[in-house]
Amino acid sequence: MMRLPLFEFRMPRTGEEVARILDGEGSNAMVLAGGTDLLPNMKRRQQVPRTLISLRHVEGLSGAQLDHGSARLGPCLTLTEIARDARFRNGCSALSQAASLVATPHIRNVATLGGNICLDTRCAYYDQNYEWRKAINFCKKKDGEICWVATGSPKCMAVSSTDTAPALIALGASVRLRSRSEERDIPLADLYNNDGMNYLTRRPNEILTEIRLGSLHGWKSTYWKLRRRGSFDFPVLSVAAAVRLSKGGVVEEARIVLGAVASRPLVATEAAKFLVGRPLDRESIEQAGTLTAKLAKPLDNTDFDMSWRKKVAAEFVNYALRELRGDDMRAQRLEVTRYLPDVNAD
């Protein structure tokens, strides 16, 4: 059996206390929310924090407040809570879909939104037991020198594998980070670096305290996830898209985000810009797909062949935009997810 390493355990009650501990411990401490990402990493000795800070009893990190203008989500909302909450089905259905497609029902029952946003980047050379990593003399991300995905690479190429972040970025989300001395709000897109090791711009002494969504009036959004099986698997490609359409069906605003093909979610600015002022017809959808897929640089460190993942990217953008146009995409959903995701509805 695999055992956790020893650690010091803290159970603070307030965000302030968390910030204080983080301030003292820095990167030696890690916060424990759902634990579904951190605990396996600890068992495999990928992450060996000296101190674990449980968020279980910290006030004010759960719950969701939705006014007609905006929404404030607690980072400790579980993915199940999001997937089940009917309030997330309209403008922010991308979030609802993304949350409902993470891992398995059991994991979603404890995994949190904040945890998924901060999910450690993943890699075939990194998400392995200690013994396995010893057999490759470790890798750049942990205990080693070389990034085995691209041996000449100066940086780590581990993959951003969060489902909810692409969806939230497409929805224009921002996050609030709190340290002992300050509180700052940044667009969620700015939380990420395209670097598998330093993939978050969060400072070691900061805690994510809130996720904010602006007005989603008039927006439609969707999330498509590619993975081998109907559950368990992390995305190997995902597309989140959101559009605001005029009454005549012309795109007034659009956001397209690619997940799991780089060390961060990739915002397809050019494709989104291209769509503005055009109807979602076949040509514009295809062009947006081509422009978006150009960004994808999948590498050989996840499931599936990397060149195939790139080929499929345009097709997935196509699915997403057709769905936003109002096409009935249930057959394609069924093909990809093996069930129609509204089964999560209460």
Binding site: L4, F9, M11, L32, G34, G35, T36, L39, P40, L52, S54, R56, T80, P105, H106, I107, N109, V110
Partner: peptide, 19 residues
């Protein structure tokens, strides 16, 4: 390793006993 924790099925291998 699934058990029911506070009414929801969860994986007991990923829950710290301390929590």
């Amino acid at each position: 390793c699934a058990v029911i924790l506070d009414g929801e099925p969860v994986l007991s291998c990923l829950v710290l006993a301390l929590e």
